[in-house]
């Protein structure tokens, strides 16, 4: 569809830079590489667990570039005081996963 992804291009560039800095292997980051980054946000672990549930769209225990952007988006919004949704709203689903 022509639904715009809620992650803005300038945010995506920032998240992609963080993604690259974590040393993705084959274009994906494993859970143990992403976990410390999310823990760094100081958000409660149950919130981070939900962020992971929502962002690991194919549930393979790893995040690709777009899934990682969803995770970072949710973490930044949560830090601004917005609640993390219980399920992923359509505007948050990366165009590559629709």
């Amino acid at each position: 569809g022509d639904l715009h992804w809620v992650v803005k291009p300038e945010e995506k560039m920032k998240f992609d830079a963080i993604f690259e800095s974590l040393g993705p292997s084959g274009g994906i980051l494993t859970g143990d590489k992403v976990k410390p980054v999310l823990l760094n946000s100081k958000l409660p672990v149950d919130i981070l667990g939900r962020v992971w549930e929502l962002s690991d769209i194919d549930r393979d225990g790893m995040l690709d570039r777009d899934e990682f952007s969803v995770a970072m988006y949710l973490v930044y919004r949560a830090l601004e005081g917005e609640p993390v949704p219980m399920s992923l709203p359509p505007p948050l689903v990366p165009p590559s996963k629709r």
Binding site: V34, L38, G49, E53, D56, R59, D60, G61
Partner: peptide
């Protein structure tokens, strides 16, 4: 929440 016998893919659980 996860299938019996399956392992969690969530590093926070």
């Amino acid at each position: 929440q996860y299938p019996a016998g399956g392992s969690s893919t969530n590093p926070f659980l």
